[in-house]
Design a protein around this nucleic acid. Structure first.
Lengths: 252, 252
DNA sequence: AAGATACATGCAGAAACGTGCAGCACCAGG
DNA sequence: CCTGGTGCTGCACGTTTCTGCATGTATCTT
């Protein structure tokens, strides 16, 4: 690995996860902590990061340019997103839903990760254009503007021709009894179609979704492999879900 | 191996893998590291790569393609775009190509215009999300990152299921003899497929494209209804085109 | 307050670098 | 056919840069 490449990696990690821990990076890249510290020191000297004890943080959010700020997802979604990214295997394939949480996942996906991403969201596709290693497949169909995804017969049909290891779905409601729900019937059907094409389906749900329900059922709990959330693991509703046998991936 | 050939190889490696390690390339090609370093130094001097200790990296990590072109000749493209919008009938249907000129068309489309837009570009689709009156249909397929559109068998097949009154195509070269050309064979095929599904096909070509030719032919002049350009109507090349019977729509 | 952890600094070996030089192929003109 | 010029390549040399380790210091945690 080139020195300059390493610095790129650090900056990327910084924007994706919001922090860098020197020790972890050293272990991950198989280099000494001294090198990581030296890099961080240099980056800090150029004003590209803020050095702190144990690693580094992004320069204060007020300094980054407008577009970048536009892009920062709420903290909860970012946590969920980075936990979700951990489920993606190098070389694997991923069906990625639309919506803001899924968009956070797309942004959190390491640029160097070799994988195939299948999506029905033009927004997600646009966000992944600068991921050179990600093969990208777009499911066509009538665009449902409210949530910026393709829906309807053509989209469902297109979905029948793909399959993947993993499907990450966003929903608007996560409830022990009502199951996983969303606000539109077409959208719910599309999510079901996507889920059916993957070996495993995980639900992306930032904490504010937990315990709420919307009008249309997407999937019953039996059909999902797990729930990824930043909610407190000791939360009453989360405990209920666990009691139902739902695998809960805690995003911290 | 020729020197120029070697440089091609380096640039290719750079876009494919995102980096070049001098030592590795030297070993792989059986030449000295000095030669590799010399090549990299030259390429860096031309702004084609960024020299770093141990090898080289792309100028600005992989994003150069689309974003950079975004800024080229915005004025000409805007003129072409607004002339193109004039061809769209209320209640009509439009097949819109990808690329920056087409993006300008999408942006220039009146928000209140009732119409159906069919596109194979996630970027265009994203830009039209805030047009409440525009019905939007996205053609799915493998996403070709360089130009941010879907291409290949699936995309062509999807195109077979739609039809429209008008097709607006962007190209990279407009030449009296070479015809309409673009830099990628897949893309050219996709453009042909789109054009075949519309009653009329117009070409979007800002002035800097006029008189140039790229590697792959999209369409011969007989298949297009007209050319929309901001180039001077008295320009030699434009006169030649008119002499060939091409309808030229002057934007400006 | 004490142990653990992270840090800066100096140092030495390794790797990469630039430069000058010589060998070689190729070409043009005599 | 020869000769001088030109451009590319690999090698040798001295220099610069990087990296990991050791040391002593600063900072955090309990």
């Amino acid at each position: 690995m080139l020195a300059a490449e390493r610095r790129e990696y650090l900056l990327d990690l910084l924007t994706r996860t919001g922090k860098v821990v020197a020790k972890d990076v050293a272990a991950e890249l198989g280099i000494s902590e001294d090198s990581v510290r030296r890099d961080l020191r240099d980056l800090a000297a150029e004003g590209l990061c803020q050095r702190v004890y144990g690693g580094a943080l992004p320069v204060s959010p007020a300094v980054v340019d407008y577009d970048a700020r536009q892009a920062v997802a709420p903290d909860g979604k970012r946590k969920v997103a980075s936990a979700a990214v951990g489920l993606v295997q190098p070389g694997g394939s991923l069906i990625l839903d639309g919506g803001t949480t899924a968009l956070a996942v797309a942004r959190a996906l390491p640029k160097g990760l070799v994988c195939t991403v299948i999506t029905h969201s033009p927004t997600i596709a646009a966000a992944l254009l600068d991921h050179p290693q990600a093969e990208l497949f777009l499911l066509g169909g009538r665009v449902f503007k409210h949530s910026a995804v393709t829906c309807g017969a053509a989209a469902v049909e297109a979905a029948q021709n793909v399959s993947a290891d993993l499907c990450l779905l966003g929903v608007t409601g996560v409830h022990p009894e009502a199951g996983l729900t969303t606000g539109d019937a077409e959208e719910a059907a599309m999510k079901r179609a996507l889920s059916a094409r993957a070996a495993d389906t995980y639900i992306l749900a930032s904490s504010e979704k937990i315990g709420t329900a919307s009008q249309f059922r997407v999937l019953p709990w039996e059909k999902v492999s797990g729930l990824i959330t930043d909610a407190d693991p000791d939360d009453t509703v989360v405990e209920e879900l666990k009691a139902l046998g739902v695998t809960v991936v805690v995003a911290g």
